[in-house]
């Protein structure tokens, strides 16, 4: 997939995730829009995982620790053929497997998440198992910047460097917002790069909406042999829909009919420009 194709996908995925959130009447809109480009790059350009090899012990793993952005993951997994996209019509409905956080009842999902601060520890275990089994797969996990205040992340960060897990990469969706407001006001976590490097990780920064840069950096892991890698992805919460960008109320806001049409219209316009 070329960069231009990724840019087209970025708009298609956004339209789909908005459609399914609107249809379900629930969803974590802002965070899904902020990480959709990251997930797209992972599944389309980085991870060795597909519906064909999903049972293969040697497949790469992706653990979405910020489970609330499940809509973005569902849309990308469907596009990769893990399940038929129309299944998502049932999202959040009675008896549907497509609930508001990832579960392994959905093909393609490795781990049930949704309570923040679990994904990194589980990823450490998966990466450590690869080392013990002398297997070459890689483990990627996506963390929220607000999520990083969960202390468990820092326990996991210590284990990862202690065991020299250079097959593990954590990506931080660094959008600067959480539910209450700016992460810097809720509980400061900056400077993240210095914290991770003090914990024995090698750190890169990336624009989380720049496909060329992400493809290059995501494929450049490990950044240093013997060290886990962390990528601080600078993103915009609500990215792609002007009135959602940087607005905390869209964390789990669902657009009404008018705003939904407005959002779709904006995305269509953008598509015309790049086509």
């Amino acid at each position: 997939m070329t960069t231009d194709e990724l840019k087209i996908k970025a708009i298609e995925y956004r339209k789909k995730l908005l459609y399914y959130i609107k249809n379900a009447g629930a969803g974590h809109t802002g965070g899904s829009l902020s990480c959709i480009d990251i997930i797209s790059v992972l599944y389309n350009k980085v991870l060795n995982v597909s519906p064909d090899n999903f049972k293969d012990p040697l497949r790469d793993r992706y653990i979405q620790s910020k489970g609330h952005s499940v809509e973005a993951l569902y849309v990308v997994l469907a596009a990769c053929g893990f399940f038929p996209e129309p299944d998502l019509e049932t999202m959040c409905r009675y008896r549907s497997h497509y609930v508001g956080h990832p579960t392994r009842k959905v093909n393609g999902i490795e781990q049930n998440t949704g309570a923040l601060g679990h994904g990194l520890s589980v990823s450490v275990g998966m990466a450590l198992a690869a080392k013990l089994n002398k297997q070459g797969y890689k483990v990627f996990t996506l963390l929220g910047d607000g999520e990083l205040t969960e202390g468990s992340n820092w326990e996991a960060a210590l284990s990862a460097s202690h065991y020299n897990l250079d097959n593990l990469t954590a990506i931080v969706d660094y959008n600067g917002l959480q539910i209450t407001g700016p992460t810097s006001e809720v509980c400061k976590t900056d400077p993240l790069d210095l914290k991770f490097s003090a914990f024995g990780w090698s750190v890169e920064q990336v624009d989380g909406h720049d496909f060329e840069e992400m493809v290059r950096i995501f494929n450049g892991t490990p950044f240093r042999k013997g060290q886990p890698s962390v990528i601080i992805a600078h993103t915009i919460k609500g990215k792609g829909v002007s009135f959602m960008e940087g607005e905390k109320k869209w964390h789990h806001g669902v657009p009404d009919d008018g705003l939904y049409r407005k959002a779709m219209h904006e995305l269509d316009k953008r598509m015309e420009l790049i086509r």
Binding site: L116, G117, G146, E147, T149, E150, G151, Q178, I179, T180, V186, C187
Partner: peptide, 27 residues
């Protein structure tokens, strides 16, 4: 609170008693 004042409908409390609410973050 732990990034939970919105979920707890405590925003009005926080506005009225800003020195009687402590935010911890998601922890």
């Amino acid at each position: 609170t732990s990034d939970s004042r919105g979920s707890g409908k405590l925003v009005p409390f926080g506005e009225r008693f800003s020195d009687q609410i402590i935010e911890i973050g998601i922890a």
